[in-house]
């Protein structure tokens, strides 16, 4: 099938090319940097792609040693142990926060999405307000409270404050999802002998797993990508997550290639999740759940 070349088609493909470049190039550049030796990065004119690609920036982050372009051994990455510890902390926190969030947020999202009750509008407003609360304003009282209760620099402390981000987000997303299910589900479940709670727990929840999976993925991403709380409440401690560890590397020494490699590692889990769920994210309304 060949289509006629019309001005509109030319324009469409030009715009598509532009959108592609705009979306991909910044990340491409980071990837390209992460595959270069520093000597190549500093060459003028700048190479737009690595001539001799190397994975040494990645292997050295995980404790390996590597030979540089001149045949000499490259220096160890001083922050490598911190980066590895940060990855582990980020994973532990993201998983525990997501589990806790689901337990608390799913029932209320079900109520908001499917039941008419007094205070529903007020509840929704409270959820939106908590969602728009500036994190930097949240962290000021937390910093003071944590400094007096010993929660500073602990995984527990970070899990607690991350709930302020994930719960409103998940309630928002799942309210939208639950309200999109057919209205007759509960009535049918009740005729089959289920109580109200069983109708929710045994019928609605299992049929909602696609929505729950997306909500869990989003909650995981929010924790994985969070920087400010961890930087302010746990920087330099054993509970420090990946992003503050990365920031130390970013500011202390000039190691742009190793830094680019570490950033690519940070981007991989979210990119995979976004790819897996992009169709659902598109159909799921993240903006307007009512």
């Amino acid at each position: 099938m060949t289509a006629a070349i019309t001005p509109r088609r030319v324009l469409t493909y030009a715009a598509a090319a532009l959108l592609l470049v705009w979306t991909v190039f910044p990340i491409y550049w980071l990837l390209s940097m992460s595959l270069m030796f520093k000597t190549e990065l500093l060459s003028v004119p700048t190479h737009l792609a690595p001539l001799e690609p190397t994975i040494s920036n990645y292997t050295r982050l995980f404790g390996g040693s590597a030979i540089g372009p001149g045949g000499t051994e490259l220096p160890q990455v001083g922050q490598a142990p911190m980066i590895r510890r940060g990855l582990l902390n980020s994973l532990v926190i993201a998983v525990s926060v997501t589990a806790a969030t689901m337990a608390v947020a799913l029932p209320v999202a079900y109520a908001l999405g499917r039941l008419a009750f007094r205070g529903r509008a007020a509840m929704l407003f409270a959820i939106i307000l908590s969602r728009s609360y500036p994190p930097i304003a949240v962290v000021v009282p937390f910093f003071y409270l944590y400094s007096r209760t010993g929660l500073q620099g602990t995984l527990r402390g970070l899990v607690i404050i991350y709930l302020t981000l994930t719960i409103p987000m998940v309630v928002w997303v799942m309210t939208s999802f639950f309200s999109s299910l057919p209205r007759t589900v509960e009535a049918a479940a009740r005729i089959d002998g289920n109580t109200r709670w069983q109708a929710f727990y045994r019928v609605i929840l299992p049929m909602s797993w696609p929505g729950i999976a997306v909500a869990a993925a989003i909650s995981f991403l929010v924790c994985w990508n969070e920087f400010a709380f961890s930087q302010i409440l746990a920087a330099g401690s054993t509970a420090q997550t990946f992003p503050p560890a990365l920031s130390t590397m970013f500011f202390q020494v000039s190691q742009p290639n190793e830094m680019a490699a570490a950033s690519i590692i940070a981007i991989i889990p979210p990119a995979i999740l976004a790819y897996l769920f992009q169709r659902r994210i598109r159909s799921l309304n993240l903006v307007d759940p009512l």
């Binding site: 598509a16 592609l20 991403l221 920087f227 950033s263 981007i267 598109r282």
Partner: peptide, 22 residues
């Protein structure tokens, strides 16, 4: 393209900052 354009959204704000700094 539709699948690809979501990519920047998955990149965290701090990583976005690193990307654009470079």
């Amino acid at each position: 393209l539709m699948a690809l354009v979501i990519l920047p959204w998955a990149v965290s704000l701090y990583a976005t900052a690193v990307v654009w700094k470079y």
